[in-house]
Design a protein around this nucleic acid. Structure first.
Length: 596
RNA sequence: GCGGGUGUAGCUCAGCGGUUUAGAGCGCCGGCCUGUCACGCCGGAGGCCGCGGGUUCAAAUCCCGUCAUCCGCGCCA
């Protein structure tokens, strides 16, 4: 089928184009039939322009409906002053149509894609099922365009610095230590399976052994785990790795990349964001102490405070017993919270209890300078203690101090969410602001409560800090790692580490993690052997591409920034995947159908 | 695996202390309309009220189960 190709894009036409004989291609965004007048807003990816059809010339135009695909020839005309539309970029002109071809007719749509107000509430599964229509919306196109620009800028930044983009396999082997693997049956030997990579971790380390020195990849990763609004079974990371570097080299590269890419995107796309500044840097221990978590939202202060010492001798028996038995009494300040009603404070305590707190004690601050407290547990504290509490918490008049008594880690888990909740309530989590920070010096391992075994905080290839190596045998919990995260606005964005590049140390860590010699050889023999051939020191980091687009577009749902996402159960309603396979496929793969 | 929300017309929703014909807006179909741009006006079609079971004279409405979807927890080296 032949058709007239466009001479112009719809969205660029202006009064200066008046008189031009042009051809445009696109979709009928809206149709307005006034009887003696017939208007169509024609849309392509550049924008909208109004078409004017003279019905006397064309007769019946009822074949043109919403989303009919058209090729239109006509003349650009400046509109009469009173008919200009200032709310449309091309509103000073319209195309007087000479001829048109219908390139594709359209059935009535499953949802009104020209009505953004309704689209904001349309059943998401339906949008995913008809994603090829959903993506016609300028809003969705813009997300894909921003995503493409992001990746383009990342490539350019890294290419300029000598990085080599290398593709690593999508079908590879299962490494059951991490998340659940997606498995692919191997046809030639029934019973054997490939797995899809959870990350290109081992490949990129082997590329360092291979002398690539600077590698990156826009890498698809696959994890068969339960979903969240910010997690999909397949997602995209900027995966990068460098040889002959220290932690500082990686930090400065990743920070420089983020600053340049994000700030350029903010200005080029006109995003309503303040420019991103240099990253704050916190150690893991500091972050836990000040914010109760390893992913602090630094858009606001309200650092946690600690009353454990004071509590040991106070009259409030709950605090005293927790403090004396090794627990912590810590709290967060709620600015202006003293005016909350008893009921509202009760709701706040309920919130804490749903997070696992046994309770939440509160103190209203009437006057910080006079050490006047009121309400809650304030009656248990004498004036000297009151002064101490106010000083420690940096309380101001009208604050509510929210206190949690629990073990340090359990308390943290409540306090950091409570702090974020208070930040929300006080309007401190500004959408304009992107606060990136480094969290560094993570512990190497943590104890798995269920199995009692040591498990890696990051992954088993992470290098312990050299100065902590002696502690590996005596007190593994105290060993810190050359491991670092980038956090943005309270969400983990990137994670990386300096890797182990010596097979003796790698083997020692595997032993610590309870992986015996035989299993090491079976699962990791390739990497242990590779390290015996002159492996260079190396390290890297992997920021999430999807999440970066979420930050930039203010989406709190990862599906919104992915072209063809899956629903919460990993189902793709558009392709109807996963699907049954036919009998021949079962047989070829040597699989037996099992009914559970 | 667990907890909570939702499921009614193509879409967004109302109805849900039980009742006779289940509504609205948008969309769709038909008619009218020469400056609209969320065009307007008139008329019309369209519903296994997610699915299965139960209680009841009577169920969209109450109960049980189930499925899908959303949010969260566990999980996510």
């Amino acid at each position: 089928m032949s058709f007239k190709q466009r001479t112009h894009e719809c969205g660029i036409l202006r009064a200066a184009d008046a008189g031009a004989q042009i051809t445009v291609n696109g979709w009928a965004h809206r149709v307005r039939d006034l009887g003696g007048l017939f208007f169509v807003d024609l849309r392509d990816r550049s924008g909208l322009v109004q078409l004017y059809f003279d019905p006397q010339k064309f007769g019946n135009l009822s074949d043109i409906k919403s989303e009919t695909c058209l090729s239109v020839c006509g003349i650009v005309q400046e509109r009469a002053e009173e008919t200009k539309n200032p709310s449309l970029a091309t509103g000073d002109v319209e195309i007087q149509v000479d001829s048109f071809d219908i390139l594709g007719t359209s059935k009535p749509l499953p949802f009104p894609l020209s009505d953004e107000q309704v689209m904001a509430n349309v059943n998401e599964e339906l949008r995913i099922k008809h994603r090829y229509l959903d993506l016609r919306r300028p809003k969705m196109y813009n997300k894909l365009a921003l995503r493409a620009a992001t990746i383009r800028k990342i490539r350019s930044y890294l290419d300029e610095r000598g990085f080599l983009e290398v593709e690593t396999p999508i079908i590879t082997r299962s490494t059951p230590e991490g998340a659940r693997d997606y498995l692919v049956p191997y046809r030639l030997e029934p019973g054997k399976f490939y797995a899809l990579p959870q990350s290109p971790q081992q490949y990129k380390q082997l590329l360092m052994v291979a002398g690539i020195e600077r590698y990156y990849q826009i890498a698809k990763c696959f994890r068969d785990e339960s979903q969240r609004s910010d997690r999909q079974p397949e997602f995209t990371q900027l995966d990068l790795e460098m040889s002959f570097v220290t932690q500082e080299d990686i930090l400065s590269l990743a920070e420089g990349l983020t600053l340049e890419v994000v700030n350029e995107l903010i200005s080029e796309f006109g995003l309503e964001k303040d420019p991103v500044g240099l990253f704050e840097r916190l150690t893991y221990d500091e972050s836990m102490r000040l914010y109760g978590c390893d992913k602090p939202d630094l858009r606001f202060g309200l650092q946690l405070f600690d009353l454990t010492e004071l509590a040991k001798s106070c009259e409030f028996s709950v605090f005293q017993s927790v403090a004396k038995s090794g627990g912590s009494i810590r709290g967060v300040r709620y600015p202006g919270g003293a005016k909350l009603s008893r009921k509202e404070v009760g709701q706040l305590e309920e919130f804490c209890k749903t997070l696992g707190a046994k309770g939440m004690a509160s103190i209203g601050v009437e006057s910080a300078s006079d050490a006047k407290l009121h309400g809650g547990v304030s009656r248990f504290f004498n004036e000297q203690e009151a002064r101490q509490i106010i000083e420690t918490s940096a309380a101001e008049d009208g604050d509510l101090l929210c206190l949690i008594a629990d073990s340090y880690m359990s308390g943290n888990n409540v306090l950091y969410r409570l702090r974020n909740e208070i930040g929300d309530r006080c309007g401190l989590r500004s959408k304009r602001s992107l606060k990136f920070c480094w969290v560094v010096d993570f512990p190497l391992v943590e104890k798995d409560e269920e199995t009692g075994l040591w498990s890696p905080m990051h992954h088993p290839f992470t290098s312990p800090k050299i100065e902590d190596m002696p502690l590996l045998d005596t007190d593994p919990a105290k060993v810190h790692a050359d491991c670092y995260d980038i956090v943005c606005n309270g969400t983990e964005w990137a994670s990386g580490s300096i890797r182990i590049h010596r097979s003796d140390i790698q083997s020692k860590i595997f032993h610590l993690l309870g992986i015996n010699e035989q299993t090491q050889q079976e699962r990791f023999g390739h990497i242990l052997e590779a390290f015996t051939y002159g492996a260079p020191p190396h390290g890297g980091i992997a920021p999430g591409i999807d999440r970066l687009i979420m930050f930039l577009m203010d989406d709190d749902n990862i599906r919104e920034v992915i072209a063809f996402p899956k629903t919460g159960n990993g189902y793709d309603p558009m392709m109807d995947a996963p699907s049954e396979i036919d009998l021949q496929q079962w047989q070829e793969l040597g699989l037996k159908q099992q009914k559970y």
